[in-house]
Design a protein around this nucleic acid. Sequence first.
DNA 1: GAATATACGGAGGATCCCTCCGCTTTCCAA
DNA 2: TTGGAAAGCGGAGGGATCCTCCGTATATTC
Lengths: 191, 191
Amino acid sequence: MTPFPTAPARALRSDAQRNRERLLEVAHAAFEEHGVDASLDDVARRAGVGIGTLYRHFPNRDALIESLIWADIERLVALAEELVADDVADGLERWLGAVVRHGITYRGLADSLVAASGAATVLGGLCDRLHGAGAAVVGHAQRRGAVRSDIDPADAVDMTAAIASITERDADDGRRRRLLQIAIDGLRTSS
Amino acid sequence: MTPFPTAPARALRSDAQRNRERLLEVAHAAFEEHGVDASLDDVARRAGVGIGTLYRHFPNRDALIESLIWADIERLVALAEELVADDVADGLERWLGAVVRHGITYRGLADSLVAASGAATVLGGLCDRLHGAGAAVVGHAQRRGAVRSDIDPADAVDMTAAIASITERDADDGRRRRLLQIAIDGLRTSS
DNA sequence: GAATATACGGAGGATCCCTCCGCTTTCCAA
DNA sequence: TTGGAAAGCGGAGGGATCCTCCGTATATTC
């Protein structure tokens, strides 16, 4: 697996390690509860840590978010590789479904991700990685003839991110599934 | 035309009327430049008006946004009525295109709109009105046989809003048009 | 030209962001 | 074991924003 891109060169001191983990834990809860605009002062407070400590570990909001979603993205990348390697028939549906359901955990995050696409943002790398995985899955579906050949795989991923973005707050899965189905139908080879 | 929902019951005093118009003017520019997070303090300052005056006219950020986009939404509603009345063949494409291109003037607004869907937000009414217009256009396309009958018109509108949301920052129209095409293909009767 | 309803303005309390730097803790070499 | 350098901690503080409140000023009406 690709190493975490901003991983520190040397091991952290034990107290720093402890604080970092506690911060990630609390931040995860805060973002889930309040969306990407959650207060970082509050995160530090709830983690029982000075605000300065938070900002040393994560120089800005995006860096903190990036650390949090890295694992999610890697999970999606791994799933993509697996589906392609095993030549799974409904791999496209399963992968896009995973992206829209579980890939984007925090409110407003899908937007940040897509907005950062290509930009010189810290989130840019994550976005590219997701696009890369999407290219593999969609490309595979195209070779199988399940997706029109004139579709840009990045567009398929963006479309899914758009749906994730808009259904983020939905309690049940209904609308999410319906919109994704429309998108997938739109990608299909018209027959 | 439906009267503005938060229109004051009685005529404003002349100075109040003047200030209100000036505020809307400046706010429009500010939102276009900085997105929905533009500073309201700054809007008041640039309008040459006290912050208290701004908040009396528009009790909160959403109320101000609502006032600004009302005209846009009404334009889309009118277009929908026209396309349906004239039985235009590619009415669906034209209307969704208008929604995605011109309907969403301010960065981040599409999100606010969809997030407010059904909620007890001030933006809820605008959202419902857009859904209503969408239902007319999509329903018409269904009757013509151009859209599958199992599509919920609201889903079609939400899908379009999702695309608008994610392509808001795009300078050129390429991705916007491609994603919309995928969505429209997904709505079509498979033949 | 009052009297009264309306509207104005901006000070102020609360919150948030992020930086800076003096103090504290950890760790390792002697 | 111990002491000092390296690494890390914390929170005060400047700047910005949000929104409320209320004393003052202006329009309108009679």
